[in-house]
Design a protein around this nucleic acid. Structure first.
Lengths: 339, 339
DNA sequence: CTGAAAGCGCTTACAG
DNA sequence: CTGAAAGCGCTTACAG
């Protein structure tokens, strides 16, 4: 590696000042066209690499945005991330990603790293149990925060997520409309706003239809294919003999359908199953999964947009932005008929 | 947000020099125990945030490592990333992630960003068509590079990947051993080292078994579930009536199995299907997928380790590290019997 | 064991 | 339109 090329290297080689070089490279109208051309050519010729650390030390803007979610291996988050990425790319912002795996400590470490790097802002799906103080840590140090997918109670931070209670009611009502009366709820936890809202939406929909709610029909558990797969045995041996399952998300639903098939039954015929999220994968599952579109790409795009707007100085008034979910009816649900 | 706390704020409030504060916070033995305690307490009390940009401007070490892969939404890369993440976390390195979606331009932009941020190194699964010069750009500017999953010809950069020709031969031989003679190859492309190696491994295995190779039995295509799903129609209508399919990867295999089921056939009974990678998902597919373990976690762990060692000054001799794949026999393959 | 001073590579008033 | 100089917040010789 040859000697380091910096602004002053270019300046000296051309007999101009570093101020002029700095302005020229950033296309300032203060610099004469000919000077600018000359400088840019020379920068290219020398293989100059702009030192963002030095610049950001001076400007206190880093061009870095942090993103932290539960787990990027989960396609639900991956779809949100893809939307965030494309929005940030378009605005030439670099993003730094981290999983928190619902560890508040891991999340806090990441927030501290972002502060140390001078990150301009952060988009986060908060870990279960995220304390107010951790969000204040970011805000108080000048790092604007946007929440996605989950809410944190009692704090005024812009939040973008789907309307979970409404969405799960769509799925539950769809099954009730097909004649199902014994409907289990598979997967999920009460520890997140999402979890509470989804269970409540399911309960409310049943009550509204005059169906008695049996808490034993709920099988909480991991929100993964593996989780749904493992719940199948339990589900199939319930004494209440449920004919349908409202699943926490598509992953659980696909896992559950696999488990049902292993037991020799046919999902979509013997048992109706609904998912949640409408992942890209839902439509090519077998049977194609009836599910609820949860607006991942909308959430990602809007959250990124909101952060960029905030950085540009605009002031948003609304703190909670609920995306309206939509039903996607496919082959995994069917009218009730005797088993 | 209160006034910015920096080293000098702490120094002044305690009547010591910034040099002492700097050393104390980094646990230098040069500082007296009592002084260090006092300084650390004060830093905590004031809510001091270490400015890594300033430090790295001085030390020219950023603690940042770049990782770029084709697509983190692909579970194959996600599994590698998880291993990289855990290794880098353990060593308190921050990583910045990017997808290149096989765009050489997007990849180059990312490499330039990393250079501008003073990234200490980069781990990359090179985009199709990555030119030598792009890798040299990194190396020549003092950013060590490690390749994963794919090779770039004619360049001496440490590379960690599975032995594709060997692995695909395992799958092909497994099917031949079950009596299959008309075996299709589904998915993939000739544009990557992986693609060429896998096709060659399949061809060689057939030849070795005395089976004539029919190029029409190959259906190249996207390496996704969707790709496998869409290939099913084509596959099932082949005049040669293949009884088995060697798939490019697990995603293609799972998609193909879904497509086969949609057509009313039973994968693992009517048609044997092998995958590649042994994703977490392979074992819970229905039928459980016979596949080839491709060592994602090994690749990630070893690549991260190699980069950290290189940063620590050690000199590796070997450039190509091939992980030996292993057969995982499950229910998607069965002895040949008349259709 | 501690302090004064220089310097990492930029950008930004300010002067001309 | 261009230049000289200060300063962003650290770390690192060097001196004491």
């Amino acid at each position: 590696m040859a000697q380091k090329i910096k602004l002053s290297t270019i300046a000296e080689s051309l007999g101009v000042s570093t101020a002029t070089v700095s302005l020229a490279l950033r296309d300032s109208p203060l610099v004469a066209d000919r000077t600018r051309e000359k400088i840019k050519d020379q920068a290219r010729a020398l293989g100059y690499i702009y030192n963002r650390r030095a610049a950001s030390l001076r400007t206190s803007r880093s061009g870095i945005i942090g993103v932290v979610v539960h787990d990027i291996m989960n396609p639900f988050y991956a779809e949100i991330l893809r939307a965030i990425e494309s929005e940030l790319d378009r605005n030439r912002q670099t993003f730094i990603l981290s999983n928190h795996y619902d560890s508040v400590e891991k999340q806090r470490t990441f927030l501290e790293t972002l502060l140390q790097l001078g990150s301009d802002g952060v988009i986060m799906s908060p870990a279960i149990g995220t304390p107010r103080d951790d969000l204040l840590l970011a805000e108080n140090n000048g790092m604007p925060t946007i929440l996605i997918a989950r809410s944190v109670p009692d704090i005024d931070v812009p939040t973008f997520r789907g309307d979970d209670a409404y969405g799960i009611a769509l799925a539950t009502n769809h099954l009730i409309g097909l004649g199902h009366r014994v409907i289990a709820m598979i997967g999920g936890t009460d520890q997140t706003s999402t979890g509470r809202d989804r269970y409540q939406g399911y309960v409310d929909a049943l009550k509204k239809a005059g169906i008695e709610v049996d808490p034993a029909l709920r099988i909480p558990g991991p929100r993964t294919k593996q989780g749904g797969f493992e719940a199948a045995v339990n589900f199939l041996s319930m004494p209440q003999k449920p004919t349908a399952a409202v699943c926490w998300n598509d992953l659980v639903a696909i896992g559950l359908m696999n488990g049902i098939q292993r037991a020799g039954l046919v999902p979509g015929r013997d048992i109706s199953v609904t998912g949640y999220d409408d992942l890209e994968e839902a439509s090519i599952a077998t049977p194609a999964l009836t599910t609820v579109w949860n607006g991942q790409s909308e959430v990602g795009r809007m959250a990124a947009r909101a952060l960029l707007d905030k950085l540009a100085g605009s002031h948003a008034e609304d703190y909670l932005h609920l995306i309206k979910p939509e039903m996607r009816i496919r082959q995994s649900t069917a009218p009730l008929h005797p088993r």
